[in-house]
Amino acid sequence: MSEIRTELKYLASHEWARVEEDGSVTIGITDHAQDSLGDVVYVEAPEVGSTVSVGEEAGVVESVKAASDIYSLVSGEVIAVNEALEDAPETVNASPYDDGWFFKVKPSDISELENALDADAYREIAEADE
């Protein structure tokens, strides 16, 4: 059974979001997502300074098995990307909620997160998918 953290928000497409103390929002993919994808070999995150929008493709994660689009849970400016994934994409498999984060957004409207799933709602989706 994959790990689902109660403090995070989720999308049905298997991304998570964490609101940081400075008000920024960190985005990554869930433990269930990394397990389904298998060994991650490339992460294509949006560029720092670019804008992401809810519902629009923000990046791509590729495993040996498949490519999958990445969506943000909030709209706004990308203020950081996890450059460590360039040389060590396997970090996404090893630590999907911590060291394997994808990018950080300065949200233009934090209330967008209210539309995201909580841990219980996401768990139902992840379990149905197993």
């Binding site: 298998g38 040996v64 098995k65 396997e90 498999n93």
Partner: peptide
């Protein structure tokens, strides 16, 4: 079995 851990 598809894999037992990391396929790589």
């Amino acid at each position: 079995p598809l894999n037992y851990g990391s396929q790589i």
